[in-house]
Simulated scan of single mutants.
Amino acid sequence: MRLKKLAGKRPARIAAGFIAMGLLSPVAAQAPSLAMLGTLDDGQWEVRPRDGGSVRRLCVRSGMELIQLQHGNSNCSRFVVEDAANAVTVQYTCRGNGYGRTSIRRETTNLVQIDSQGIAGGLPFQFSAEARRVGACR
């Protein structure tokens, strides 16, 4: 396809042509939903680092609580890297407080594997953990 021929056409017509040829998907413009996190059971979850670090408990209501474990409730902007049926990856930036990238893989609605890395409080972090529902929130 010649670029000179495309230059005079409207962008919408060009995009429609690419969609018709299967080269561009209209779904790409929609915001990811992170639906997998919503399938996790609500309740008290225990996050157990693989390196033997401190076990942490938290109340999970939406699953989103598992994304920013090193940044807590900081108001961070998020960019969804992967949004699959059994896995999500989110990159986030907490203005003035660092950033991170977290991947969560669901094994069951009560068990997930978490890998996260980034900068928190000016220091780098990296961890792998297993998170499991252990009961109701207190």
Rank of each mutant, 00 (worst) to 15 (best):
L40S: 00
H71L: 10
K9S: 11
A28Y: 05
T108E: 05
A85Y: 09
P26G: 00
E107C: 04
V90H: 03
M1L: 15
R95N: 10
A20E: 14
C137S: 03
Q126N: 13
A35T: 09
K5T: 13
Q68M: 14
V90N: 04
G72Y: 05
Y99D: 02
V112K: 02
I19D: 10
N86P: 03
E82P: 06
N86M: 11
C94A: 04
Q70W: 01
Q91L: 10
C59V: 05
A85K: 14
L24G: 03
L24A: 11
S33Q: 15
K9L: 15
T108K: 01
K5Y: 12
G38L: 07
H71S: 09
T109R: 15
I14V: 15
A15T: 06
S54Q: 15
D42R: 14
I104G: 03
C76H: 05
I104C: 06
S116E: 02
M64W: 07
D83I: 05
I114Y: 00
D115N: 11
L40Q: 02
I14A: 13
L123K: 15
G118L: 00
R95Q: 14
G98S: 06
W45Y: 03
R101G: 04
M21T: 05
I104D: 00
G43I: 05
F125E: 01
A120P: 01
I104V: 12
G121Y: 05
Q70K: 09
A15F: 05
F127A: 01
M1V: 14
C76G: 04
T39E: 12
R132V: 11
P32T: 11
S54D: 15
E46D: 10
V80N: 09
R57A: 07
Q30N: 13
I67V: 15
F125V: 00
G96A: 12
S54P: 05
R101Q: 13
A16F: 04
